Computed example of a mutant assay.
Amino acid sequence: MSNLERRGAVYYWRRRMPPQLARIAGQTHLKISLQTKEPAHARFLAAHLDATAAHVFMSADPRFITKEQLTELFRQVFEQHRNKVALMADFSRQEAGFDPALEPVDDQGMGWAYRAIAKNGVAARVGEGDRLAMTEAGIDAHGIASIELTLAAMQHTGVARPSRCAVSS
């Protein structure tokens, strides 16, 4: 996945900043440790950060944002999402009929849904390019349909909307 790199055993999210923000920040890339060694978890977190970056980079006025604000924004989004993921995992483990074998499949679906949102905005749909990438990643037609349902559910429930932190900055 783009913007994801592994240094040693830990994954990092690294994103090139638009030139106008790079001049203000004094650096060309943002880099955040995802604090995980698990590739699936790293992809999931990176997809959410990609979606936030797409929103911020398109809407932020570079004249009114500092390097510190930009860095803090992404750190807050990362922490919020990591806490949300942990809470959701705790809730799902307590439900009757919990199947640990299905959890990675659900996580993968959420990751692909966030990837579509990062690429195409909150009204994203799974397009042919997305289907091709999913097929190349080994996802069958049933899995792709499941990802489309996940994306629709995220949009319907408001999960796909930008975080308040991103909107208020």
Rank of each mutant, 00 (worst) to 15 (best):
W13H: 06
H29W: 04
H41K: 13
M110Q: 11
S33W: 06
L45E: 01
Q20A: 11
A96D: 14
V85I: 09
G121W: 01
Q94M: 10
A89H: 08
P62W: 07
R131M: 12
K84V: 06
V77Y: 04
A25N: 01
Q94V: 06
R93H: 15
V56E: 00
F64N: 13
R63A: 14
R131E: 13
F44T: 05
E103G: 05
Q20P: 01
G109L: 04
A124K: 05
V126A: 07
R131S: 10
D99G: 06
K31W: 12
A46C: 10
R82H: 14
D107Y: 06
L21S: 04
E79T: 09
L49R: 04
M88N: 15
E72Y: 12
R82M: 13
L30A: 08
A9L: 10
I65S: 04
A40P: 05
E79N: 08
Y12A: 00
K31E: 15
L45Y: 01
T71I: 14
S59D: 11
I65V: 11
Q108F: 06
M88F: 13
H55R: 03
T36F: 03
L34R: 01
I65L: 04
I24M: 10
A101T: 02
L73D: 03
L34S: 02
S33A: 08
A89Y: 05
E72G: 13
Q94F: 05
A116S: 05
L70Q: 04
A25H: 05
L102I: 10
H55E: 01
E79P: 03
A42E: 05
D107W: 07
M17G: 06
V77C: 03
D130L: 01
A101W: 05
A118P: 02
F64W: 09
R125T: 14
G109W: 00
D107N: 09
I117S: 01
R131C: 10
F98D: 09
A25V: 02
F98L: 10
G97S: 02
A116P: 00
A89W: 07
L21T: 07
F91Q: 15
R15K: 15
S2F: 13
R15T: 12
R75S: 13
G111I: 08
E72M: 11
K119E: 11
R63N: 13
A9V: 09
A42I: 01
R43H: 06
H81W: 13
P19V: 15
G121T: 06
R115W: 07
G8A: 08
Q80D: 00
F64Y: 13
Y11K: 03
Y114R: 09
K37E: 11
K37I: 08
L73K: 05
E103P: 02
I65H: 02
V122D: 14
E38T: 07
I32C: 00
F91H: 14
R7P: 02
N3R: 07
A123R: 09
R63F: 09
Q108N: 06
R43S: 02
K84L: 07
I24E: 12
Q108K: 04
R82W: 15
P19I: 15
F64M: 09
K84Y: 05
G109A: 08
M17A: 03
A51C: 02
E79S: 12
T71H: 12
L70M: 12
R23H: 11
K67I: 07
S33I: 07
A9M: 10
T66S: 04
